[in-house]
């Protein structure tokens, strides 16, 4: 496991683990409500044709979020 930075930089298809969430407060709360809490395995599965937003998969669900929102979610790579 090594540090890659945030969710928006995560390569497509790469599995990672959420390490920390630190962005805008209301965005944070919303993301955590959906189950994005530290320790959760997460994968970026799609990028919209125009480059934003992105779709991620975690806990058996698929969520789309904008890159600015994804930038507050820090992840560690997992192989």
């Amino acid at each position: 496991m090594d540090l890659v930075g945030n969710l928006s930089q995560l390569p497509l298809g790469q599995l990672a683990v959420i390490s920390e969430i630190c962005g805008d407060l209301s965005v944070n709360q919303r993301l955590m409500t959906m189950g994005m809490i530290p320790g959760t395995e997460i994968r970026k599965v799609q990028v919209a044709p125009l480059g934003d937003p992105i779709a991620v998969e975690f806990k058996g669900q698929k969520i789309s979020l904008r890159k600015t929102e994804a930038a507050g979610v820090f992840v560690d790579l997992k192989d």
């Binding site: 919303r30 959906m34 969520i63 979020l65």
Partner: peptide, 12 residues
């Protein structure tokens, strides 16, 4: 009104 995050569920 404050904008909401665009966190949208993509159901199966």
């Amino acid at each position: 009104t404050k904008p909401h995050p665009f966190v949208l569920e993509m159901p199966p």
